[in-house]
Design a protein around this nucleic acid. Structure first.
Lengths: 341, 341
DNA sequence: TCCCGTTATGCAATCGATTGCGATACCAGG
DNA sequence: CCTGGTATCGCAATCGATTGCATAACGGGA
């Protein structure tokens, strides 16, 4: 079918090994520049494409990376995937993308299948705070975590400065005059849920505000769960004038809850989201939220993994935190005057 | 590192070739059932994983499929990707996902890189009505088109019955009392844009309505383009009471245009979208739209491609059309009485 | 002139699974 | 007892690129 090294060798009149060396930038200096030129011309003429299976068989490196995403339908992730693909592609690597649906069983099955494919490493967005699989996996593969981190093992990761992000949200609300601020927290098994919740308490305390009974955690990152959760919270504590949600879905669920109680957002209750997924500017109301640099997370993770691939030895575990920013839209406003003390 | 056929052979005391045959369902009948059992036990004990590169090198089949998506950030596509991955994965194939950003140059570059990876076939969501690349590619690979089809070459495809979808939209509006209906058409280079536009004219004619100057096509599937386009359309023809948009983005752009002209949707102008992307139920106003079966498109395309992979010979080109349905939400209502004739 | 070092290239093994072909053994029928 | 057939299995080549080692050529210095 396609031309091989041997074909080129025959055409140029040299040995396949020399062709291999000439075509490989890392070994081209071993070959006479004249023959390198001839080889390259012949290769181009026969539009030679190296067979990655043959190369991989010999070198046992597939130049593929397993990318494990909890839910591709969550618009948060395509942005990261894009960053990963760009950076990986430029380095000659191909991402193998899989989707776990947030199911640990599915995850371990897919990870096994990627291992069978002999990926050279993993980028995982599925970390849980306690995650046994990660420990096993990290012994056999280079791994980079994105978005979420793990507490059970220290692994290289690219995530967000959650403390900073939540602080932005709280300060924004505080600045608008809010004092009765609640938090719809994410699942506690997720570092994002946990860290943002911790950060909320700290940020509130920094402003002299209390959070007692004002934090309620969902068990899944879904609109429905947040709707229930926020409804309960507001009913039990009608003084609440603002909600910081641990991500955009939870914010949307909170808004649904507010609407469901015949109240209005932001007039009665302001809501801040987190992530700034696509379309958050055109939902009703346009969502004020903390924006995380999705592309950068992906490309930074890819770069990190690539660097781990070349320098096998280094034992340092690089944990990157990127800085989020606040995007103010229409889901937040001043609390109504009659509700202020 | 990992166990090989030779390792198993040594352990069981037979030749690697026999192990290979025992483990391959297609050739297992050539081996004594007793030894098959022994081999399987040993393989499991040593948790043997076949090396796909070695197998691929020998058989020149990579068990990977190139999946080419125009824009992963468009929430329409993750649904399809999911369907593809499920079906492909079940059959032992791995999708290699790439993103062209709707750029033909990027596309041909990525397709080349997937060819270099020796994919066994392609699923493409990037077809244009006139698309030279497809013809070349289809000579060397099995191909299935999704969502869009091509007119320049007859290729297997899985798409939507656009005529039916548009008819649903028009009939819905007609039933509400609308007579002055406009169409924001998609780019004409896309089969979806073209077919939906044709279908609009036909459906209108079936109701005795005219479309003269009521159809305006954008040059890209973006909210901004639709905003401009719809603004122009409504200004030039203020009698318009409803818009059928060729997809959800265009619908969102149309709504933005309506708002931008200080009018309201649906009170002043009703809007129908197409695709029913995630979150279309919570934008403002919740979008009435034609829903296409995203998962099914993906899984059906994967099934089709897999069948082409086994029966090399067949020359029949299967072109599947799936049936969309109408989801009624709040972006459509009766035209205002004073605007009726 | 001889020797040695450098440069350039050839040789052959290797990665691990697959598969056509040949060899062996065993059984039944003549 | 011999023969043809079948069930099992081994042998070895093969896929295409990589790479350690050997070899050859060549030039300069003693």
């Amino acid at each position: 079918m396609s031309a091989t090294l041997k074909d080129i060798a025959k055409k140029v009149g040299i040995h396949p090994a020399t062709v291999s060396r000439a075509l490989n930038p890392r070994t081209a200096h071993l070959v006479n520049p004249t023959t390198v030129a001839k080889v390259k011309k012949a290769a181009a003429a026969m539009n030679y494409l190296p067979n990655p299976m043959a190369a991989g068989l010999r070198t046992s490196r597939s130049h593929t990376i397993g990318v494990v995403i909890p839910d591709l339908n969550n618009p948060l992730f395509p942005g990261m995937v894009r960053g990963i693909q760009d950076t990986l592609g430029r380095a000659g690597y191909t991402p193998l993308l899989v989707n776990t649906d947030n199911d640990p069983d599915v995850e371990s099955h897919l990870v096994a299948s990627l291992s069978a494919r002999r990926v050279d490493g993993f980028i995982l967005a599925t970390a849980r705070r306690d995650h046994p699989l990660l420990a096993q996996l990290s012994e056999k593969f280079p791994i980079v975590l994105i978005n979420r981190v793990s507490e059970s093992v220290q692994l290289p990761s690219v995530a967000v400065d959650e403390q900073h992000g939540i602080r932005l949200a709280v300060e924004h609300l505080y600045g608008l005059g809010h004092r009765e601020i609640a938090h719809i927290a994410g699942p506690t098994w997720s570092s994002t849920g946990h860290e943002r919740s911790q950060a909320f308490t700290r940020s509130m305390k920094d402003h002299g505000l209390v959070t007692a009974k004002r934090i309620s955690a969902v068990t899944s990152w879904s609109i429905e769960a947040a709707n229930e959760c926020a409804t309960r919270l507001i009913k039990s504590d009608p003084a609440i004038t603002a909600i910081v949600a641990a991500n955009d879905q939870l914010a949307l669920g909170s808004i649904a809850a507010i609407k469901g109680m015949k109240r209005r957002c932001p007039r009665d209750v302001s809501v801040v989201g987190y992530n700034d997924m696509p379309f958050m500017d055109i939902v009703d109301p346009p969502l004020t939220c903390v924006r995380i640099p999705q592309d950068d997370i992906g490309s930074e993770a890819a770069r990190l993994l690539l660097s781990m691939l070349v320098e096998e030895g280094s034992t340092s575990v690089k944990q990157v935190r990127l800085t989020p920013e606040l995007i103010v839209r229409s889901s937040t406003t001043h609390p109504r005057v009659e509700r202020l003390q």
